[in-house]
């Protein structure tokens, strides 16, 4: 397969970037999007050009490192996939593919397609935990949890922290990310004691980091590679108002 790649290149956080167009031939349909870019880099290095910087690690959709805005979609046009699992067979031979970094004030570009997502860590740090120290835990089965609640908590906690929700949102809102964490703990009895403090702190930090607000458009849900549901945002809102 053959592609025309229009990729955002930016030296560092302070430089101005621009698109650079590359023609790439010899792409196999079973390559993943990341493998295609690695292949591009190998050819660029061979020609003495500078390779494109982008993040990727596990290649199985679970670490959350990869993520780029491909032809108008975070993680590309196929639902439920991270960039590393997106196969080239989903693209048409000869197609032009425009690749941009996540765009959001709290995700500044570091270089090319790599962005800084420390803001997510900061939000989690504000309260995304249960304060039980090593040694203080009761016997695991001493806390029965309704299976349904536990399953819903799991569905929320599969978030990989990739930032696609923010990238997809017209407001660059982090509500889906935050709601997934809040929901996980709200649905489990272990999380209840700190519930109110947690939701207050995480929401305050989310605003402080400069994320936008939620317009309930559902773009985040549509683009989440782990298909985390919008109900979690409703739950977050509920938890927030109960906290005051």
């Amino acid at each position: 397969m053959k592609f025309k790649l229009k990729i955002w290149k930016q030296r560092d956080a302070h430089s101005r970037g621009s698109f650079v167009t590359y023609d790439l031939d010899g792409v196999a349909p079973e390559m993943s999007f990341i493998e295609m870019l690695t292949y591009l880099n190998e050819t660029l290095i061979g020609k003495g050009d500078e390779p494109v910087t982008f993040e990727h690690d596990c290649h199985e959709g679970i670490c959350g490192s990869c993520g780029m805005y491909i032809n108008g979609y975070p993680h590309g046009p196929v639902k439920g996939l991270t960039t590393c699992l997106l196969s080239m067979r989903y693209f048409k031979d000869g197609e032009t593919i425009v690749i941009e970094p996540w765009r959001a004030k709290p995700f500044p570009v570091i270089k090319d397609l790599m962005v800084d997502r420390t803001s997510f860590d900061k939000i989690q740090q504000a309260g995304g935990f249960i304060s039980i120290s090593v040694g203080a835990a009761p016997e695991a089965n001493a806390i029965p949890v309704r299976k349904h609640s536990s399953d819903l908590a799991f569905d929320a906690s599969v978030c990989i922290g990739c930032g696609a929700c923010v990238a997809a949102c017209k407001n660059a809102s982090a509500m889906l990310f935050v709601s997934a964490k809040i929901s996980q703990y709200a649905l489990l009895p272990q999380g209840r004691p700190e519930g109110k403090d947690r939701v207050r702190a995480m929401i305050a930090e989310m605003d402080k980091q400069g994320f936008g607000s939620c317009s309930n458009t559902g773009a985040c849900e549509a683009q989440c590679p782990k298909q985390i549901k919008l109900f979690n945002i409703a739950r977050l809102n509920r938890e927030y108002f109960k906290a005051y």
């Binding site: 805005y69 765009r103 407001n171 400069g210 936008g212 317009s215 773009a219 549509a222 683009q223």
Partner: peptide
Amino acid sequence: NWCSRPVGYAVRNKSDTSAFSR
């Protein structure tokens, strides 16, 4: 919300949402 994305995308966001909400 506009301030949350100072640099926009070159390609229009095609995420699957209803036009009413956007």
